[in-house]
């Protein structure tokens, strides 16, 4: 019994210690931001790694999610004779929820895990130490540009996801199932609000981008510098980001759409 309590206690202490390290890390990254922003070339390279390489999976997933929404939404709405509202259903689901959330989850799987592995391996192969000894701060040179790139890329990816999804739903609803084209768009435009829906969706994806980049970079920077340690850190990135994004989504939704 005492052994069990002790193990629990040790785990708890370890958890809070890591939490503290994570926040200190964040503060140091934020402090390094001005220096990183002064060098847009580094940012462009990271936007490529984080954004462009995630684009394909975002586009394809967005299309399929939109098509499924079109199909499911139609089947439900047609029972009430309200299939004209399909555009509203598809657009609201995507803009408010699925766009920011699913693209954040995909971002964690594609870009987040890659960031963790990259930073972890740089640590394991002494590249970060090497930089420090060359009087180059790895937080400024390596971490901060990646953080900014994640923050910038996330809302753009979510917006692309939503738009591709709306057209996917349109393709299924209007193209295949015969919903009226005019009704699809006009109902959507009447119901989707720029501030309440679009703007709040963008805010959500900004928050998710912040959290996903933070977790990914911290896990890499804090990884045990061995191949096994980096592997574990990569898994943790995906799991923790998924949990954080879903949990935060609930909180943000509660705050935004009372």
């Amino acid at each position: 019994m005492t052994a069990w309590l002790q193990r629990l206690g040790r785990r708890g202490i370890g958890f809070f210690e890591r939490l503290g390290r994570g926040h200190l890390f964040l503060l140091r990254v934020l402090a390094a931001l001005p220096a990183a922003l002064a060098r847009p070339r580094l940012l462009v390279a990271q936007l490529h790694a984080v954004g462009v390489r995630t684009l394909l999976i975002i586009g394809v997933s967005g299309l399929f999610v939109g098509m499924v929404l079109g199909l499911q939404g139609y089947n439900t709405l047609v029972d009430f004779g309200a299939e004209e509202s399909l555009g509203v259903v598809v657009a609201l689901s995507l803009v408010r929820e699925l766009g920011p959330v699913v693209s954040a989850l995909l971002f964690a799987g594609r870009a987040g895990s890659a960031l963790t592995a990259e930073i972890g391996l740089m640590k394991a192969t002494e590249q970060l130490s090497g930089m420090e000894m060359m009087a180059v701060d790895p937080l400024e040179r390596v971490v901060a540009p990646r953080f900014v790139a994640g923050l910038v890329a996330m809302p753009l990816l979510a917006a692309i996801f939503s738009v591709v999804g709306v057209y996917g739903g349109w393709f299924v609803g209007v193209g295949l199932l015969g919903v009226d084209d005019g009704a699809f768009w006009s109902q959507m435009q009447a119901q989707v609000d720029l501030h309440d829906d679009v703007y709040n969706g963008v805010v959500k994806s900004l928050v998710f981008g912040f959290v996903a980049s933070w977790i990914a970079l911290f896990e890499g920077y804090d990884a045990v510098p061995t191949s096994e340690g980096v592997g574990r850190a990569t898994t943790r990135t995906v799991v923790h980001t998924a949990l954080a994004v879903l949990g935060l989504d609930f909180v943000l939704t509660a705050l935004m759409f009372e």
């Binding site: 590249q127 130490s129 060359m134």
Partner: peptide, 19 residues
């Protein structure tokens, strides 16, 4: 410290080249 490090070179065991 960073100014001092610029005047020190260090060769790591693995080389620590940026991959």
């Amino acid at each position: 410290l960073y100014a001092l490090r610029r005047r020190m070179g260090m060769l790591f065991q693995s080389g620590a080249l940026l991959t």
